[in-house]
Amino acid sequence: MNTGAPGKSRLLPGYVALYFLFLYLPILLLPVFSFNNAAATTFPLAGFTTKWYVSLRGNGEMLAAAVNSLIVGVCVSGLSTLLGICAARAITRYRFRGRRAANGLIMAPLFLPEIIVAVSLLMVVLAAGMELSLATIILGQTVFCLPYCMSVLTAGFEGFDRSLEEASLDLGETAFGTFRRVTLPVVAPAILSSLLVSFTISLDEFILAFFLSGTEPTLAVYIWGQLRFAAKLPSVLALGTIMLLISILLLTIAEVVRRRAERRYATGGYAHA
């Protein structure tokens, strides 16, 4: 394992542990205080309670926001994955002029302050006379999710041996049949992964939703509104914990699917010319 690189010193594992603590501590605090029997988020803890979770059940405003988030998430993940498939396939499969420029534009939101994307979209939407609604959030978040979908999908498509498609054609299958019987099943894990990742991003995304939402807030926008009221913090933490679990669950599924596919296909031992 040790390849003559600077050796693993004793300090490094300690540093890694510290780093992980830094990374995870703030996130683990949410569930801790969501079960704490006090409105203030202070130590020592005041005892176990589930009342903050119970209070969520009757919260119609929150439930409405959750439904909005679900609608937006499903639409965004579907739309951005579909657009991502087209672009990722074009970029990995074909050579054409402007390929790099096109890729650069699609990936640009990764390298832009989100507020500027949000503001510019807001101006266009309002200038076009559109009403702010869930639809405008969907349009905006799709722009934002595309780079992530593209990363997942291009990685999946690049591992795809082109001779598989040629083999299918050679064995008598049509172009469409080849896409259905070979391309789609082999890249399915990447597609699923892209759907899950973009849904997670949409669920948690705040800035675009904040700028582009009308009277129907998403969960993130709803939480933002609640943050002003200190008394509501624990129930927001409870909601946050549930969202956290959903996010982690979805991401884990995406990762497992992706890695199982990778294991299965990577050892396919494609010889290269």
């Binding site: 074909y94 002029r97 699609i106 799709t142 595309l146």
Partner: peptide, 30 residues
């Protein structure tokens, strides 16, 4: 190469159109 170019552009055009109209254009308007 010409047909490959055409296929590539055709396939990427929906995404590109989307990115142009909802990213490039808005920033130009800003």
């Amino acid at each position: 190469s010409a047909s490959e170019e055409a296929s590539g552009l055709a396939l990427i055009s929906p995404t590109l159109l989307y990115a142009v109209s909802l990213l490039a254009l808005p920033i130009l308007i800003v």
